[in-house]
């Protein structure tokens, strides 16, 4: 499992990059979902989001999940290409698999990578 140290993480397995405002799902989350076959982004550019608001719906071969905003603020960009290539979430969750960007977003009490890795480890046992 991989959790870059420059990102913040939520208990529901989203990541947020305070530097760029980008957000998506963690490597741990994509592994749990397995082969992702459908992504629908539920917010549009310009929309205000609060922490915990549903921003995307993801379906894999065996599971489905709602993805929640890891930070509050205004949506400045959405990754429109994702719906045509949902498998990007499996192959590159922190890069090409970004979902939305939240301009000037604040991540609240999200975890740092060390705390998140520990949190994931606890759940695999």
């Amino acid at each position: 499992m991989n959790a870059p140290s420059n990102l913040k993480y939520t208990k529901s397995d989203e990541w947020f990059d305070p530097a760029t405002g980008a957000a998506g799902i963690s490597d741990y989350a994509q592994g749990q979902l397995s082969d992702i076959v459908f992504v629908e982004l539920l917010v549009d550019e310009g929309e205000e989001v609060t922490i915990g608001k549903a921003i995307a719906s993801v379906e894999s071969v065996k599971a489905s999940a709602e993805i929640y905003a890891p930070a509050a603020g205004k949506v400045s960009a959405v990754n429109k290409g994702l719906s045509d290539k949902p498998e990007t979430l499996n192959s590159d969750p922190y890069g090409e698999g970004w979902m939305i960007k939240i301009a000037g977003g604040s991540a609240g009490d999200a975890m740092d990578s060390a705390a998140y890795e520990k949190y994931c480890e606890e759940r695999t046992h």
Binding site: V37, F38, S57, E59, S60, V61, K62, A63, S64, E66
Partner: peptide, 13 residues
């Protein structure tokens, strides 16, 4: 196929 759309996985959503 696409069974994750259905009630037994997606439940109330």
């Amino acid at each position: 196929t696409l069974t994750s759309r259905e009630q037994h996985i997606k439940r109330e959503r």
